[in-house]
Amino acid sequence: MEQELYSHPSLLFKSQIGEVRKRTFKEQFMRSAFTSLDYEPIMECRVSATVNYIDIDPTMKFSLASDCDGNISIYEIEEEARGRLRLIERRQFVPLTLNKSQWFPIDNGLIAATYPNKVVLVDTNTLKLLDSYDFGQKKIYSSDWNKLNPNLITVGTSGSSIRFIDIRSGCCLQQITVASLLGSSNHSVSRVCWSPIDEECLFAGDSSGFIHIFDIRKPRQSLQSIGSDNTTCEPVVNLSFTCDNMNLITAHGAQSHLSQWTFKNRTLVNSNINYPFSYCRPTSKKKSSAINISTAFYKCQLYVTETLLFKPISVPNFGSEICVYDLKNGERLRTLSPTTWNPDNCMNVHCVTGFHRDYPVLISGSKRYIRVWGLENNKKDAEQRTNQYHEDDWC
């Protein structure tokens, strides 16, 4: 029975002779059980345009979807239906591509919507615009809401600049200029991300592939600027922290090469974990950085759990939509695809997110669909019974 239950006999043997502590054994068992589960699409929401970003509110009851037609789609996450989505409202506030819409970090009373040249605030109760911040000729590539100081929104733009929005005063605050370490004339800030543990610490990725760390109280010079040898000259298209806030996951270029960095004392160190990829997105033969910016910067959203990394596959007709990696060692565990695959229902996916309430759920966005991925009921119930049965032994 034990050999059948625990999928790692070597680990079980070590635990029996006292070489593995109970906590370590529990963590590794839970990790093995979680990664062995198979996700299947449990529902599809058809959309009219490519979905660029999906965000889930702090209560995990509502989700936002941003698409290329400029629509903000608000969905209710139905708990009784194991994460299925029900469309509440779809609105277009600006007739431009909506790069990102993000919930207010504390509750779901506000939405920040980022367009190519402006950021707007929306009241979710009335669905009316509260404020608008126009950036003129500068093109916006990224934005992020400070979860520790919800009054601040940071914006990464063309012209190597980072701007700050104070929603209390309605003003755009000081500007940070990010230096081009390669001397590029067409240099931009492609991604921005606040530290989840330090409200004054800001991360910025640029079009040259470098990551910069700033203390916003002393913005004239970065605390650190670092790049990886195999991702230099590839723009940073994603910045995501792990659940323990100790590591930063970055994605670079049109192929979304993944790197992991250890973050400690406001310094990044390359963890040297290799995340292989088995597909190649077609790229233009032209070497204009402007083309790379327009195609790659907007559409790459990763989802990171305690043990897994979910990466969207942005290659049409590849046969799969999400690649799943082991977060700790970079091993590619599997790819997720619809059960009945055909060229019409398997799309190039640009964003994936999820949550883990009483059950794990993934939500992905592509050219034609928003898909919800869940576990089969019998697998979920069996997993709960197994964990409950052994809970006392692990305490």
Rank of each mutant, 00 (worst) to 15 (best):
residue 295 T to M: 09
residue 308 L to M: 15
residue 265 N to T: 10
residue 311 K to W: 01
residue 287 K to V: 10
residue 311 K to F: 06
residue 267 T to Y: 00
residue 286 K to F: 15
residue 219 P to L: 01
residue 248 L to T: 06
residue 257 H to L: 14
residue 311 K to L: 02
residue 275 Y to A: 11
residue 293 I to P: 01
residue 285 K to R: 08
residue 236 V to P: 09
residue 302 L to H: 06
residue 272 N to S: 12
residue 242 T to A: 10
residue 300 C to L: 00
residue 260 Q to C: 14
residue 279 Y to N: 02
residue 267 T to H: 06
residue 306 E to I: 07
residue 247 N to V: 01
residue 312 P to G: 03
residue 248 L to F: 11
residue 264 K to Y: 04
residue 284 S to L: 01
residue 219 P to C: 13
residue 229 D to I: 11
residue 242 T to K: 07
residue 306 E to L: 09
residue 272 N to L: 08
residue 298 Y to D: 03
residue 276 P to H: 00
residue 254 A to M: 13
residue 252 H to Y: 08
residue 228 S to N: 04
residue 227 G to T: 15
residue 236 V to Y: 04
residue 248 L to W: 02
residue 238 N to L: 01
residue 261 W to F: 01
residue 220 R to E: 12
residue 278 S to P: 03
residue 275 Y to P: 11
residue 237 V to E: 10
residue 287 K to E: 13
residue 264 K to M: 00
residue 281 R to Y: 14
residue 301 Q to L: 11
residue 270 N to Y: 02
residue 308 L to D: 13
residue 230 N to T: 14
residue 239 L to Y: 01
residue 219 P to I: 11
residue 234 E to W: 02
residue 260 Q to I: 13
residue 258 L to T: 12
residue 217 R to T: 11
residue 298 Y to W: 06
residue 257 H to M: 09
residue 295 T to H: 08
residue 282 P to C: 02
residue 274 N to A: 05
residue 270 N to K: 07
residue 311 K to A: 04
residue 220 R to F: 13
residue 229 D to E: 14
residue 272 N to P: 02
residue 266 R to F: 05
residue 244 D to F: 05
residue 277 F to V: 02
residue 221 Q to G: 00
residue 267 T to K: 14
residue 289 S to H: 13
residue 300 C to W: 02
residue 258 L to K: 04
residue 224 Q to T: 09
residue 230 N to I: 04
residue 267 T to F: 01
residue 297 F to R: 10
residue 278 S to R: 10
residue 245 N to S: 15
residue 258 L to S: 12
residue 303 Y to Q: 04
residue 262 T to C: 10
residue 304 V to L: 09
residue 266 R to V: 07
residue 248 L to A: 05
residue 219 P to N: 15
residue 253 G to P: 13
residue 238 N to F: 01
residue 219 P to F: 15
residue 278 S to W: 13
residue 293 I to E: 08
residue 291 I to D: 07
residue 299 K to M: 04
residue 240 S to M: 03
residue 257 H to W: 10
residue 298 Y to P: 00
residue 247 N to H: 10
residue 254 A to L: 09
residue 267 T to C: 04
residue 290 A to E: 09
residue 292 N to V: 08
residue 261 W to N: 07
residue 226 I to M: 04
